[in-house]
Design a protein around this nucleic acid. Structure first.
Lengths: 193, 193
DNA sequence: GTTATTTTGAGACGATCGTAACAAAATGAA
DNA sequence: TTCATTTTGTTACGATCGTCTCAAAATAAC
């Protein structure tokens, strides 16, 4: 019926997502976006809207992928404790990148949450769902006697989410292996039955 | 000998510091700075240099105040455990602000560390010194049998610094009182002898 | 009161910001 | 082939970006 798009919108949005993750919201210009997404200025606005809208779409995409994967792996785990351990090991691994650009959820929470109420709401809900997934996993772990019952599953879940955010910040400092080995040793000692 | 400045440079830098803390580096313009510091454009550049230089001066100032205070209170504490508890209670309290703009050190680590090597170096050294202060306090706490010996003082210090950074991110979500009560309950259980 | 020195405020620089407009190009349906 | 429809790339808009220039203003020393 009409001229088809010359680019794949899904792939273009992926590239925008990556760019926002690397540079943050304010430091990313629309020219950066057209360069990275490999589309013209006209296509950018007609297909994706304004910069705010592109960012929000990219943020949602990232959340669904990243948190979605975490929630799924927690819910599906045979051993919840092992799932939690895998998550922390994977995320601390990211700090060994030459340029640790971090997690878009953490970055956006720091950069935008105090200024953009709608973004804050979305982030808050997302973090909450992640916390709930941790809580479910911890409850199961407690039933399996893998995880301490000295604390409620909710308290432990909140503790882990806070720790995860701390790792997201610490990764930016290119920490050596010992940094995370030491830290995680305390974290998982706190989970021990 | 010459015309004196019509403003207090110390106070002006304080205001710049506050502004960067609230808005971040990229989102703060030089006009924002002159407005907030209540000085003219000419005075801004002749007295403080470029935007980068103003930011770095503000960052150093914030670090000395904020981390300096933490280090001093840790080193001076009669009860290291109580000092640590006070620190976490004060910082979690900040999340109850109507607009939690957070800690400039955390914010800058997230926004700038991966892109500005000199800022990253400064931040890394600062975080390291904070970690060392925690380690000294924890060692003393262990000698006083206030703090667990199941983990090394270094591991516990690294754990606490990561936790502190996580709180800095979590505060942006305006967490309710229970969020931090639950979280800190796990943290201090991990320190118990 | 002069003079040397520094601060001040206003204006302006080129560059870049986010956004919009629009003609040319490319397609499926008739 | 023609036509209606959508995408594309270019151009340019007004606004704002960070920085600089420079004459006027204000002081301390003489």
């Amino acid at each position: 019926m009409a001229r088809p798009k010359a680019f794949d919108p899904e792939q273009a949005l992926d590239r925008a997502m990556e760019l926002f993750r690397r540079k943050g919201y304010a430091a990313t210009t629309t020219s950066d976006l057209t360069d990275e997404m490999q589309i013209g200025r006209g296509s950018l606005f007609s297909s994706f809207g304004t910069k705010d809208q592109i960012f929000f779409a990219a943020l949602c995409r990232y959340q669904e992928r990243s948190f979605g994967h975490l929630v799924a792996s927690l819910d599906a785990a045979r051993s919840p404790l092992q799932a939690i351990r895998s998550i922390f090991e994977a995320i601390t691994q990211e700090g060994r990148a030459e340029r640790p650009f971090g997690c878009l959820m953490v970055n956006s929470t720091v950069e935008l949450a105090p200024h953009a109420p709608d973004v804050q709401r979305y982030l808050a809900r997302s973090w909450e769902r992640l916390e709930e997934a941790f809580e479910r996993a911890i409850s199961r772990g407690q039933e399996l006697h893998e995880i301490s019952r000295r604390q409620t599953s909710r308290a432990l879940a909140r503790f882990l989410v806070t720790m995860l955010r701390g790792v997201g910040v610490g990764n930016k400092m290119r920490p050596d292996k010992d940094m995370w080995r030491d830290t995680l040793s305390v974290v998982f000692a706190a989970l021990e039955p």
